[in-house]
């Protein structure tokens, strides 16, 4: 596949990088990423991955754009109010870069449909806002050996880790099971500063670019935390994968996907931050 002159110019800043170059850009253009959640995290991730020229980008979200989303979900505009988020996000991606193939899933992912969807992608971004979805994505990712980026944000804090199943620790290795109901507030109750979602969602896009191109080292075996109030990043080294993990150990207890019970405040798995 040869670049057109337009592509050479569009992707020139990538091609100039020794770590990406011509080969890396071709890998991006032949690569695919599924973004689960077109909200606070998914918006910047989708914008950057479309701009980067990732060949095929899937976007899954069953919600419609709400006025209260626009403070941080920067892929949608005021004109998109009431429209399906996945459709709105796909349109913006296409407008940025017509080279990108977008695939729209206007549905929340659950134990029945998730495996059939993630199998078509090289890398998955968990851009959801609730624990049932995070455990579902982790378990489905581990069972399908599908690499993914986990992220979570709340108020002024965010966290991030990348999972290469059966090589690096998974989300469940660190957070063994669903927190009790009401132990952790959702961002609907707790609030979230918009630019925080931009920081962490952009880091997820970076992990996807690094995974596809092979540049640098992934955030595996580590949990990155970010505190915006003190402007502090920390990277915590995690214990090795395996022993005792209910899903990714060599003798897992969990071998089937579960749709966990919703927390009290009525949100749906797969809905975005």
């Amino acid at each position: 596949m040869a670049f057109t002159d337009e592509q050479l110019e569009r992707y020139s800043r990538h091609i100039l990088l020794k770590e990406i170059g011509v080969r890396g850009q071709k890998k991006l253009m032949n690569g695919s990423v599924l973004i689960i959640g077109a909200g606070g995290l998914g918006s910047p991730a989708a914008l950057y991955l479309a701009a980067a020229g990732v060949g095929r980008i899937g976007i899954a979200d069953a919600d419609v754009v709400d006025l209260s989303n626009l403070q941080r979900q920067v892929i949608h505009t005021t004109a998109d109010l009431g429209r399906p988020k996945a459709v709105s996000a796909a349109e913006t991606m296409k407008a940025i870069n017509p080279d990108v193939e977008t695939v729209v899933y206007r549905e929340f992912l659950n134990s029945k449909n998730i495996s059939g969807i993630i199998k078509d992608y090289d890398f998955v971004l968990d851009c959801t806002d609730n624990f049932p979805a995070k455990f579902l994505i982790n378990d489905a990712g581990v069972m399908a050996d599908k690499p993914f980026s986990h992220a979570g944000i709340l108020r002024f804090r965010g966290q991030l880790m990348t999972v290469i199943p059966h090589e690096s620790p998974c989300y469940r290795c660190v957070f063994h099971e669903m927190p009790p109901k009401d132990a952790i507030p959702s961002c609907r109750e707790a609030g979230i500063v918009g630019a925080m979602a931009g920081v962490i969602g952009s880091l997820q896009a970076l992990e996807a670019v690094k995974y596809l191109t092979g540049a640098g080292e992934l955030l595996t075996g580590k949990l990155l935390t970010f505190d915006a109030l003190t402007m502090t990043f920390h990277t915590v080294q995690l214990p090795p994968r395996g022993d005792g993990c209910a899903v990714c150990s060599d003798h897992p207890e969990i071998t089937e996907l579960t749709d966990y019970e919703q927390p009290a405040c009525e949100f749906k798995p797969g809905s975005a931050v």
Binding site: S12, I15, L16, G21
Partner: peptide, 13 residues
Amino acid sequence: CPVTFVKTKVALE
């Protein structure tokens, strides 16, 4: 610039 060097890189590749 920078397409000058980009084209050179592509040719070298």
